[in-house]
Structures are given as structure tokens and as C-alpha cells.
């Protein structure tokens, strides 16, 4: 028998330990999670924990506030005593802001970049913190519930406390959050478009009747041949304008469901992995979800940035 090195011994030991944990996990079942799409698992309007006027305090709103608190706290302590030579938390915050600012200014240019920055950076940080905080172990497992017995995935039954309504639930998995962000993104983009180009130019991007009217003018003058071609191209132009206008609104839906779908799927994946093989198998998926949260945050803010840049760029007048 050949001698094994220390490294191989450690590796084999680790693998054995993992196997034991996995097998052990199978014999200590977790109850099947209830997967719901809406916050607080209610019907059309969820049952809130508390009503604050028209605002219903749901579990996702609580976690939103949690991320807001963490974010504001981080920035508060980072910028409380600003030094020219940064240190510690200030350094971290400055690096983050500088990276984001560089990204925004790189795409939108220096002047527009500064205008867009606050909204885009806040969208990024909000999505990122909602996603990452949703990975904390307190999420989905603390809440109002009942004691009962449910069958596990493979062996035995789970008996004990079963959470019906969790107090903490990842905020991005509540469709109101992605929808709100999509609306903020949409409104900001349209606002920047209007203020940068002026109402006439901006509306002209979608209402492209110039060519068509030109064609009608030719028709009145009796130049039938040029009139026909102008009317044809004018009709295409109008159609393109309608498509562009439609795409502005379609963005809201795509923004909403991209983030909502990814985040909800991620959460369901984690819950299911924890249910199927408890204890360690879910760990790699946590890593995956960490990455996914960052990617979704980046996609959301990058797309908003690109749309905003497109909106403030004057449309090339191609029929002059």
C-alpha cells in the first residue's frame, strides 16, 4: 500500500466528514417549505403585520427597512468624519462610490454621469443589499407558525415548529420591490430624456411623422413618385416610433420580472436544497446566490444607465 501525503489524508478526512454530514442530514429531515409569490403569503392584498395608514408593513417591507438601515448606517459611519487620507470604512465607501461613479461616468459621460449617479447608485445598492441580506440565516425561518408534523424528503418525519408567515423575507422576492425599481428607472429615464432634449425633440423620437407629412405635401404638389416613396418610408418611420414608444413601457415589465424571477427562483432553490438534503448541500448554492445578487444589481443599474444615456442622446436625423 502506498503512503499517502498529509494533504491527501486531510482531503480524504474532509470528504468523509462531508459524506457523514450529508447522510446525517438526510436522516434529520426538514419540513417542506411553502413557496409563495406574494409577500406575507396573503391573497390579493397580503395580511400585514401592522398598518401604517395606506402603507402595509409586510415582511418584505421590514427587510427593506433592514437593508436601508444597514446602508444608511454604513454610509453614516463612513462619512461621519471625512479625512482627506481615507481610512477603514471611509475607504470602503469611497472605493464603492468611486467605482460606481467611474462606471456611470464611463457610460454616460462626465456631465450626465453626475446627474444620473444618485438614482443609479441607489438602485444598485438597494438591490444588492436586499439580495445579500436575504441570504442571512434569519430569513424565512423566524416567524409566526404552528407546531406540527410533516414528512421529510427521504426518511422520517419532521415534527416541531413550522413557520407559516416569516418575519423576514428577501425584499427582492416581493414583486412590489422590482416593480417599484422599474418604475423609478422608467420615470427617471423619461424625466432625463425630457429635460435634456426638450419636450419637442424627445416626443419627436417616438412620434415620427415628419417624413409622412413630407410625402403628403409632395402629393398635394403633384409629385406622385417622390410622394409615394416618402409616404412609404414615412409609414415605416411611424411604425418604428410606435415600437420605440412601446419598448419604453415594455422595459418596466422586463425590469420587474427579470429581478423578481431571478431572486424568487434563487430563494426557492435555496429552500428546496435545504429541504432535500439539509445541512451542507445548500452551501454552494449560497455562493451562487451571492454572485447572482451582485449580477442582478449590476444588470438593473447598468440597463437603467444605458436607457438613460440613450434617452438623453439626440436621435440622429437620418432623412435630412
Amino acid at each position: 500500500m502506498s503512503k499517502l501525503g498529509l494533504k491527501s489524508k486531510v482531503a480524504i478526512g474532509l470528504v468523509l466528514a462531508l459524506l457523514l454530514i450529508v447522510i446525517g442530514g438526510i436522516f434529520f429531515p426538514v419540513h417542506q417549505p411553502d413557496v409563495h409569490l406574494s409577500a406575507n403569503y396573503g391573497g390579493h392584498v397580503p395580511e400585514p403585520f401592522y398598518k401604517l395608514g395606506p402603507i402595509y408593513i409586510t415582511n418584505t417591507l421590514i427587510t427593506s427597512w433592514l437593508s436601508i438601515t444597514v446602508l444608511v448606517g454604513l454610509f453614516y459611519f463612513a462619512t461621519r468624519r471625512m479625512r482627506l487620507v481615507p481610512k477603514g470604512l471611509q475607504n470602503l465607501a469611497e472605493t464603492a462610490i468611486e467605482t460606481l461613479l467611474g462606471f456611470v461616468e464611463g457610460v454616460a459621460g462626465k456631465k450626465n454621469g453626475r446627474r444620473f449617479f444618485a438614482v443609479i447608485a441607489t438602485i444598485f445598492l438597494y438591490v444588492l443589499f436586499n439580495a445579500w441580506m436575504g441570504l442571512l440565516p434569519i430569513f424565512n425561518f423566524i416567524g409566526i407558525g404552528h407546531t406540527g408534523t410533516e414528512s421529510g424528503a427521504f426518511f422520517g418525519d419532521y415534527s416541531g415548529f413550522i413557520v407559516d408567515v416569516a418575519i423576514f423575507r428577501a425584499a427582492n422576492t416581493d414583486i412590489n420591490v422590482p416593480l417599484m425599481l422599474a418604475l423609478v428607472s422608467f420615470i427617471s429615464v423619461e424625466y432625463w430624456g425630457f429635460t435634456s432634449l426638450g419636450v419637442r425633440t424627445y416626443v419627436g423620437k417616438f412620434l415620427r411623422v415628419r417624413q409622412f407629412l413630407l410625402g403628403l405635401g409632395y402629393l398635394v404638389k403633384g409629385r406622385v413618385k417622390s410622394a409615394l416613396s416618402a409616404i412609404l418610408f414615412g409609414a415605416i418611420d411611424i411604425f418604428v416610433g410606435i415600437l420605440e414608444l412601446l419598448s419604453e413601457f415594455v422595459r418596466i415589465i422586463s425590469f420587474t420580472f427579470r429581478l423578481f424571477g431571478n431572486m424568487t427562483a434563487g430563494e426557492v432553490l435555496l429552500l428546496m436544497m435545504a429541504f432535500l438534503v439539509p445541512w451542507v448541500v445548500a452551501v454552494p448554492f449560497y455562493g451562487l446566490e451571492t454572485l447572482l445578487g451582485a449580477i442582478q444589481a449590476l444588470i438593473f443599474c447598468a440597463l437603467t444607465l444605458v436607457f438613460a444615456t440613450m434617452a438623453v442622446t439626440p436621435h440622429e436625423t437620418d432623412h435630412d
Binding site: H36, L37, S38, A39, H44, V45, P46, P48, P54, I55, Y56, I57, T58, T60, L61, S64, D174, I175, N176, V177, L179, M180, F260
Partner: peptide
């Protein structure tokens, strides 16, 4: 899907 104006407003 859980869309409601209470949640939206809160957000």
C-alpha cells in the same frame, strides 16, 4: 403575484 398598491407605496 403579490402586486398591490400598498406594498408599492411602501416601497
Amino acid at each position: 403575484l403579490g402586486i398591490n398598491w400598498h406594498g408599492l407605496l411602501g416601497q
